[in-house]
């Protein structure tokens, strides 16, 4: 996903003189050709994330459309007050693009993990969040985000589904178990494991790569009594949105995702998926426990 992001961003810089890119050393070498072509609009401030976002705010105030890129923990967590004040409070907007996701760099340890990034962005107002599930989803999402005028966050990952799914981020039914079936919503790269987990269960599976704004109309159209969220970042990040969308309906919600604890373990992203119960076996255990009563009661 990072390679496609770099290529697409280089194209955008050439196509539109309003586009600018702000870096804090991360990916700077990969962007060197773009920087040579557009020295005034590819700006690497060094290892200075507060300045990276502050500069983006200033660029936006002059009418440019900044793309801001780093590892997720440095882009979102370290520079959170700059996101809140140098962008939002100034009524300035930018497109943030992270790599690293929750634990892409698992072997690097806690400092490079960022399961809370989407939750933090969710404390802000009016942001669009894209969590692509495949590299081929990235160019259209990035181009749409840059062409828009609001703030957006693209969360890139090395984890991916087998194939890309297009769409505008509305809930897309991947597997339909019929009216009233439990609805599982998988976000981005969580889809394939979720599909495998419920392959032999009467569960409808829907996909989105755009958790914000969450497709609440699509959710209401498809949700029965049981709703399952599978998110590749902090568990429960979208619970409030689902609860608010279904406030007038009796429903049960199972919100799966990354746990809050620092596991103090290295390994691979796949290892962390397993440890957080986000591999297909772990998801199946959680879904079985959640649905046990419901499926029995419904005679399914």
């Amino acid at each position: 996903m990072r390679d496609i992001f770099i290529d697409t961003t280089a194209e955008l810089l050439t196509e539109n003189p309003r586009t600018a890119l702000v870096l804090a050393d991360i990916s700077a070498a990969a962007f060197a050709p773009a920087a040579a072509r557009h020295p005034d609009r590819v700006l690497n401030v060094g290892i200075r994330e507060q300045l990276m976002v502050g500069v983006a705010g200033g660029l936006a105030l002059t009418g440019l459309r900044p793309i801001v890129h780093s590892y997720a923990p440095f882009l979102i967590e370290r520079a959170y007050e700059q996101l809140k004040l140098d962008l939002d409070h100034q009524a300035a907007t930018a497109v943030l693009v992270s790599v690293g996701a929750s634990y892409d760099r698992a072997a690097a340890g806690r400092t490079h993990l960022s399961p809370a990034d989407v939750s933090l962005i969710d404390t802000l107002h009016g942001w669009t969040v894209h969590v692509p599930g495949h590299p081929a989803e990235v160019p259209a999402l990035l181009r749409d985000a840059v062409a828009g005028d609001g703030s957006a966050y693209l969360r890139l990952s090395v984890l991916r589904n087998d194939r890309p799914r297009g769409g505008d981020g509305s809930l897309a039914v991947v597997r339909n178990a019929g009216p009233g079936a439990p609805l599982l919503v998988a976000v981005g790269p969580a889809l394939d494991a979720a599909l495998a987990a419920v392959a032999d269960l009467p569960v409808t599976v829907a996909y989105t790569h755009r958790p914000r704004p969450f497709d609440t109309a699509g959710l209401r159209a498809r949700a029965g009594t049981e709703v399952i969220l599978v998110e590749p970042y902090l568990a429960g990040t979208s619970s409030r949105v689902v609860s608010a969308a279904l406030v007038d309906r009796p429903h049960r919600l199972l919100a799966l995702g990354v746990g809050r604890a620092d596991l103090r373990r290295y390994g691979s992203p796949e290892d962390h998926n397993r440890w957080h119960g986000l591999d297909s076996a772990g998801l199946r255990r959680s879904v079985d426990a959640f649905l046990a009563g419901a499926l029995l009661a419904a005679g399914r």
Binding site: P17, Q50, G57, G58, L59, L61, T62, L85, Q90
Partner: peptide
């Protein structure tokens, strides 16, 4: 008023970005 401020330490970064943005547009 060019920026909203209050929390200290935000103006200079915004000013650097503003100067860079003007330069990038030939202003």
């Amino acid at each position: 008023v060019e920026i909203g401020s209050g929390s200290l330490g935000h103006g200079l970064g915004l000013g650097v970005g503003t100067a860079l943005g003007l330069r990038a547009q030939g202003l």
